[in-house]
Design a protein around this nucleic acid. Sequence first.
DNA 1: CCTGACTCGGGTAATTGGGGTG
DNA 2: CATGTCCCAATTACCCGAGTCA
Lengths: 70, 70
Amino acid sequence: MSAPTVSRTQDSLLTPGQVAAMFHVDPKTVTRWAHAGRLGSLRTPGGHRRFRESEVLQLLDSLTTEASRH
Amino acid sequence: MSAPTVSRTQDSLLTPGQVAAMFHVDPKTVTRWAHAGRLGSLRTPGGHRRFRESEVLQLLDSLTTEASRH
DNA sequence: CCTGACTCGGGTAATTGGGGTG
DNA sequence: CATGTCCCAATTACCCGAGTCA
């Protein structure tokens, strides 16, 4: 894999608690979104979920811009 | 500081019940305000609304300062 | 190695959303 | 015209004990 494909997306991984704070919801709710396919879930060897900052930001943006629909 | 890339990621969000308590009205009424365009409505993937604390505070302040704004 | 804080998992309670009505 | 209350279904919030992360 010395491929220069540079898949280096500067994606910081956020914990459920951090994402929950951004949406003002419970960490369990964020877990449900991941389970519903709303967010990609990265799993640590221990089973903990981790979310990509870019994905969370994108989802947050889509929910934030919902005020100008129509 | 124009900071065009940093604006939609640091706002406290309130639940309809919390906003309703601040205005002393029913959550249903707050929902109608959002539907009328008086409040920006942030929707969770599940369909629940979330309101910006700054927007609610501003609306509350305008109602508290001037009840005859016409 | 141990500690502190957070997360996981399932289940239940409370709240929310939408429509229709007064 | 705006607000309050009813129904139902869906979503979200909090409880416990155990494990994992840093």
